[in-house]
Amino acid sequence: MSTLHTVNKSPFSTQSLLSCLNHAKDGDTILMIEDGVYGAAKGTGLGDALAARGGAVSLCVLASDMEARGLEASRLIDGVTPVDYAGFVEMVVNNDRTQSWL
C-alpha cells in the first residue's frame, strides 16, 4: 500500500512540498511537476529537507517540465530521477492512490 504524491508549486512560493514531505510515508513516491520541479534543484535552501526523505521516499521529477524551465539533469539533487509522462502513468498505476499537493 503506497501513495503517489504530486507537487506542482515552487517550494519558494508555497509550503506544498514541505507539507508533502511531512506526510509522505516510507515507500511512497513524490513526483514534482509544473513549477514543482524547482524543488528538485540542488543548492537551494530546501535541499536538506528533500535529501532527508530521499531513499525512504522515491523522488522524481517530470522531465518535460524540467526541460521547459531550463533545469538540467546535472542540477538535480542526487537521487532525484527524471521521468516522462509514460513514467508518470506507471507511478499512478503502481501506487494505490494519488494525492495532489495543490
Binding site: M1, S2, T3, H23, K25, D28, D96, R97, T98, Q99, S100, W101, L102
Partner: peptide, 9 residues
C-alpha cells in the same frame, strides 16, 4: 491519508 481508496485534493 495512506488508508484511503480515493483522494480528492
Amino acid at each position: 491519508m495512506a488508508d484511503q481508496d480515493v483522494v480528492l485534493s
